[in-house]
Design a protein around this nucleic acid. Structure first.
Lengths: 187, 187
DNA sequence: ACAAAATTAGGTCAATTGACCTAATTTTTC
DNA sequence: GAAAAATTAGGTCAATTGACCTAATTTTGT
């Protein structure tokens, strides 16, 4: 990894850190530089304006998420002794993020908030979700003849769960019990 | 309705209008006053700071939504001649909002963005969703013995659909075809 | 050692914003 | 018609922010 790449990565991590701890409204170039013990000038040497910084940070974040899902998928797949049902339950447990992934989901919310009035970010997010769905379809196609249905069910559901999950009349475990047979029937 | 109430209502409508057209970041006391052809001083005569204004606006918005929901409730009640399947399909068609309800959904997103770093608004939203789920459970309990499951399925799904609905591998009609039998099986 | 890359220091500038304030005037209410 | 409520006018003040700039210095790669 080139020095420049190392640096831009650390910058972007600082952006995400500020975003997670203080939110969109308080995210400024100065604050990011401060967190890195870096000069504002130097930060601007790498990202000449805030927009470029945000776009880069969002791209980085999406890449991280995709890698996470990919890793869990292969881990579950390597578990040859898992039944299909156990596999589905494992995926659901991953997707219906509990309090452990709170920060990540908080970041999702902040980024959504940023993208709301930023066309470039909006496009980037749409692209991310499209790619994510495509990829997810190919994964499920190993188990089902209608992977599109599974994806079209799971992706919006997990998004929505992150928003209203704590106000539902069922607990997370019950949701997994509810969803698992539905997925299994989409063979 | 008292004069004061009329005025505060018009103020709050202006807040929502600015929120819908320009978004959270560009919402300022001055802009709201400007939209009302009102002095900043006068606006501050009614709401002494921005927080009070936001809290009032969000409460108003939720009340509107609740009223909508209530109206749909009575409309559904009057339609006694619908088959269960038609009923479910109709409900799904309503919930999977198309471009027609864009503005309302945009407002939802903006308010979510506001609430992200405002505990009072956060509590208000949670309360709104909880009430909404309760109401929805009572509605479905007329058709199913597990209305909680239906609600726990539909509410997050429709939330998520509003976010990622346009990037899914299935069209809206196909989604309704997919979801209807799932709901019908939860009897 | 030399050139390029990275970094610091230190600034300017215009714009926005929330929070305050007072005095005068108009409108409403009773 | 008098008191209360609503409204205007006009301001101040401190803080933040993004964007921009230049000159000097240090670090790194080769």
């Amino acid at each position: 990894m080139s020095k420049r790449l190392e640096k831009t990565n650390s910058i972007i991590q600082a952006v995400l850190s500020v975003l997670a701890t203080e939110g969109t409204q308080k995210l400024s170039m100065r604050k990011v530089a401060e967190q890195l013990n870096m000069t504002l000038s130097n930060l601007q040497y790498y990202y000449k304006d805030k927009d470029q910084l945000l776009v880069a940070a969002v791209a980085y974040f999406f890449k991280l998420c995709q890698e996470d899902v990919e890793q869990t998928w292969t881990e579950l797949k390597d578990h040859k002794d898992l039944s299909l049902e156990e596999f589905v339950r494992g995926m659901l447990a991953l997707l219906l993020v509990g309090p452990e992934s709170q920060e990540r989901f908080l970041l999702f919310k902040e980024i959504r908030s940023l993208a709301l009035r930023n066309e470039e970010l909006q496009r980037a997010m749409d692209q991310y979700y499209t790619d994510y769905c495509d990829w997810f379809v190919t994964l499920w196609s190993a188990f089902s003849s209608q992977p599109e249905s599974i994806v079209a069910l799971l992706v919006p559901y997990t998004e929505g769960y992150g928003i209203v999950g704590n106000t539902l009349p069922l607990e997370r475990e019950q949701l997994i019990d509810l969803l698992t047979p539905i997925i299994l029937k989409l063979k």
